[in-house]
């Protein structure tokens, strides 16, 4: 008799324990912010922009937390197409249009732009080149067989670089052309160590400049403009959160944060906010 009562009291304890755990789980769920997975580019991550933006987003929307997965633009879009991300911040217009055409995206809005620059060793052989256009400079680098390091990772920067070689009418191939298959920061460090040229977004270059033996070779060519857009993924697991984030990053407070970012540290802005610009206006400027 006493045995069975022991047994039932033990069972009571187990039930009580389980109930407590379940209760704690529910409390945990209600206070835990919901997670938005943002697939973004290595260039925005390396520039430090998210460290400025995300705390402000958290303040405006305490119910959400953004987890940034920093990969190349190509991979960011592929992740999203597989449903592994809720929102995308990318800078590869061609790939983004394909993504939208395939029906993977719910909306796509411009957020900001910066520009690409071609950088290289301050006393490198390509310094004599005619630098009126990015394509001409690349042609000159190729003619000199000066070492050029390509991202080689299907990122937005890599896509732009390939377009520039096309424009220059050059098949980039040979001993002098290296494909690194790594992020922007790693490629800049490599270029610096190897006295090589590379195409980079200005933000990553400026944020690493003190550690690099590289200076700007070409800038200002309209083809070097780098437009970032935010995409809400149609099949997002956290669709409401993704919409909230896209609305926020294109709103006035976030846009002014973007416009101010970098002015203290580099004496100039790294990104120019341009949310609300129509695709028509973007096309004309490109």
């Amino acid at each position: 008799m006493s045995e069975s009562s022991d047994y039932s009291s033990a069972r009571g304890l187990v039930v009580l324990g389980l109930a407590t755990m379940l209760g704690l789980l529910f409390i945990g769920c209600s206070t835990e912010p919901r997670e938005i997975i943002l697939a973004s580019t290595t260039s925005t991550e390396d520039s430090g922009l998210f460290e400025r933006l995300l705390p402000a987003f958290r303040e405006a929307h305490p119910g959400y937390r953004v987890r940034v997965i920093a990969v190349g633009s190509g991979e960011a879009l592929r992740l999203a197409a597989r449903g592994d991300a809720d929102a995308v911040l990318a800078h590869s217009p061609g790939a983004e249009e394909e993504f939208m055409a395939a029906g993977h995206g719910e909306s796509r809005q411009p957020v900001m732009y910066n520009d690409f620059v071609i950088v290289g060793p301050p006393a490198g052989s390509a310094r004599h080149c005619a630098l009126e256009s990015a394509a001409a400079a690349l042609a000159c680098i190729a003619a000199d067989s000066a070492t050029f390091i390509s991202r080689g990772d299907d990122s937005g920067t890599h896509a732009r670089e390939r377009r520039l070689w096309d424009l220059a009418g050059i098949e980039a191939d040979g001993e002098w052309y290296l494909e690194a298959g790594q992020g922007m920061g790693a490629v800049l460090m490599m270029a610096s160590e190897m006295d090589a040229y590379t195409l980079t977004d200005r933000g990553t270059y400026l944020s690493l400049r003190e550690r690099l033996h590289l200076s700007v070779l070409v800038e200002g060519d309209p083809i070097l403009r780098n437009q970032y857009s935010v995409i809400v993924v149609r099949d997002a697991a956290e669709l409401e959160g993704a919409r909230t984030f896209a609305d926020w990053i294109t709103s006035e407070p976030a846009q002014s944060l973007i416009g101010a970012f970098g002015t203290e540290r580099f004496g100039r802005r790294l990104f120019t906010p341009n949310a609300g610009q129509t695709s028509q206006e973007l096309k004309i400027e490109n």
């Binding site: 080689g152 990772d153 290296l178 494909e179 690194a180 298959g181 790594q182 790693a186 490599m190």
Partner: peptide, 17 residues
């Protein structure tokens, strides 16, 4: 190594890329 195509890319770094 830097994972350079045709120079320093090995099995593991190629799998990552």
């Amino acid at each position: 190594g830097g994972n350079v195509h045709g120079e320093t890319r090995v099995i593991t770094t190629a799998i990552v890329l």
